[in-house]
Amino acid sequence: MRDAFAETISRALDTDPRLALVLADISADRIQQAARRHPDRVINVGIREQLLIGVTGGLALAGMRPVAHTFPPFLVERAFEQIKLDLSHQDAGAVLVSWGGSYDIADNGRTHMAPGDVALMDTLPGWRIQVPGHPREAAELVSAALPGEDSVYLRLSAQSNAQARPVTPTLQVVRRGREAVVVAVGPTLDRVLAATASMDVTVLYASTVRPFDGAGLRAAVEFTGRADVVLVEPYLAGTSTHCVAEALLHVPHRVLALGVRRDVELRAYGEPADHDAAHGLDVTGIAAAVHTFTG
């Protein structure tokens, strides 16, 4: 997805004179050619994340369409007040593109992990938050975000499903069942499908998580006949539970929220798959949790 982003944005810079890309060293090596072609519109501020967002806000105020990019902890967490004030409060639309998911660079440890990014962005009104599950979806979502004026957070990852799915703002029905509704976000879909292969559950796929498709969830719950919902999110567990509660306000329901655990800081390195297993986000973990919940 990182290459998909670099290629898509590089091409778009050639055709859209409003577009500006702001970097803080990360990924600058992948954008070199576009930077040479568009020195005024590819701006590397160095390792300065407060300025990364400040410059992004200023570009928008000057009438440009800015895109800012770095790893999630440095994009969203390090200078979050700049996102709140230099973008949201100024009513300055921008596209923030992170790459690194919750723990794509697991061997770098906690400093390079940001399972809380979506929850943080969710505290600000008006952001579209998208979590593609495949590089082709990432390219489509980047392309779709560029022409607008609005605020978009695109959360790209090394984790991916085998096949790209159509990009829609709605929850897509992947499979119908009767025991529960399982919402798989982005790159968790393949694992959810494998984990629930022998279960009679509806599986929905989401690559857009904000705004959350509450109507789509309600429809799926009605069709399924049971208001038992499982959220499988590749970031902080329960990040979207309040959206489910809102969507099912008038339906007595249960929610199981799977995701990166909140109760402890997992101090471990290794591979992303090790962390999936530790957080119960691998096939075995998801299968066991859904089985217990529906059983």
């Binding site: 004179p17 500006a20 702001v22 005024d40 519109r41 701006i43 407060q50 300025l51 967002i53 400040g54 410059v55 992004t56 806000g57 200023g58 570009l59 928008a60 105020l61 000057a62 009438g63 440009m64 800015p66 007040e81 700049q82 004030l85 230099d86 409060h89 100024q90």
Partner: peptide
């Protein structure tokens, strides 16, 4: 008012971005 402000330390970064945006146009 060109910017909303009150939390200190936000104007210069926004100013740098504004100049870069003007210059790019």
């Amino acid at each position: 008012a060109e910017i909303g402000s009150g939390s200190l330390g936000h104007g210069l970064g926004l100013g740098v971005g504004t100049v870069l945006g003007l210059r790019a146009q």
